[in-house]
């Protein structure tokens, strides 16, 4: 593995498998009375978040703490960034504070690469612009593998605003690398040009994927897309793409429903589906924790046997 985790695009199947396998090892720890191992003791992990986030940030923070790292939280809204400090100077400040890891979330694609150039810390992309969200894709793969036992050959449909979704992009790369069949379902205004060339099938309406979809992955639809004329209204989106009990009943009986959160109840997902038995949103959150532990651990150079950290 590279020293940073910024893109799924540049990983290979072996890298991904290694992270998923390591995550499984860490999952055991969650069931212990004392949920902590010393793997990152003495290391400083900074979470540098220029966008609001609940689950990703808390998940990284807790993952680092469970590996015994010291964690510093930087939130742009309460920091010198509001005084106009540049991204470069913020990164240099983190370097001066001795950060070993920077977990960055930024509204601009490529910001993690920019930060990586400013110091010798390890950079983990916690979501950049419309670019990628690698740990989200990894936890999604982990969850699918956990529920269905495999990735290869599965039919995974991603439905929603593909064009503006870093989650979709990372999942397309990750799933196709692992041999799953990816179907993208979205109104044409929410599909970037040539997306099918990344190895995914494209459909404009959900009825095309009822028959054989194993995983239905829903994306959050954002209100501001209405302004960009990608949608007439959220109501119309809900009518055409919203997953409710009726629509779900047309899918295979054992289809599983996933969502990266936060969900928009009544838009891409109805309350009955969100709270139903086919939905694994809470498992995704729990798995996110172990996947992030695995990433931090492996970037630290976790070449030694995967179990060592646990013992």
């Amino acid at each position: 593995m590279d020293r940073n985790l910024i893109r799924i695009r540049t990983l290979d199947k072996e890298d991904i498998t290694k992270i998923l396998d390591q995550s499984k090892v860490f999952l055991e720890i969650l069931d212990r009375p004392i949920k902590k191992v010393p793997a990152l003791r003495g290391k400083v992990v900074v979470t540098l978040f220029f966008e609001p986030s609940t689950r990703t940030r808390m998940s990284f923070e807790l993952a680092a703490k469970m590996l015994s790292a010291d964690v510093l939280n930087f939130a742009a809204s309460t920091s010198s960034a509001v005084k106009g400090e540049s991204l470069k100077d913020t990164a240099l400040t983190m370097k001066a504070l001795g950060a070993d890891y920077i977990v960055v979330r930024h509204t601009h694609t490529g910001a993690p690469e920019f930060i990586a150039k400013q110091g010798d810390f390890r950079v983990i992309n916690g979501g950049d612009g419309f670019g990628e969200h690698p740990t989200q894709a990894l936890l999604d793969l982990f969850t699918i593998r956990q529920k269905l036992g495999r990735l290869e050959g599965l039919n995974v449909a991603i439905m929603g605003d593909i064009a503006h979704s870093r989650v979709a992009r990372s999942n397309i790369f990750a799933l196709t690398k692992m041999g799953a069949n990816v179907r993208l379902v979205a109104p044409p205004t929410m599909l970037p040009v040539n997306i099918e060339k990344l190895g995914a099938q494209v459909h404009y309406r959900p009825d095309a994927i009822f028959e054989d979809t194993d995983v239905l992955y829903l994306l959050r639809v954002q209100t501001e897309r209405q302004k960009d004329s990608l949608l007439p209204s959220l109501k119309e989106y809900a009518e055409l793409f919203g997953v409710n009990g009726d629509l779900l009943s047309k899918f295979k009986k054992d289809v599983i429903v996933m969502h990266p959160g936060p969900i928009n109840r009544g838009v891409e997902i109805s309350h009955d589906v969100a709270d139903g038995n086919d939905t694994y949103i809470e498992e995704q959150v729990r798995n996110g924790l172990v996947v992030r532990m695995a990433v931090l651990y492996l970037l630290e150079g976790g070449k030694e046997a995967a179990h060592e950290a646990v013992n």
Binding site: T109, G110, V193, L198
Partner: peptide, 13 residues
Amino acid sequence: NEGMVSTTIGMRP
């Protein structure tokens, strides 16, 4: 530019 690269890396085209 809007094209395969903007789609791949996820930038406003």
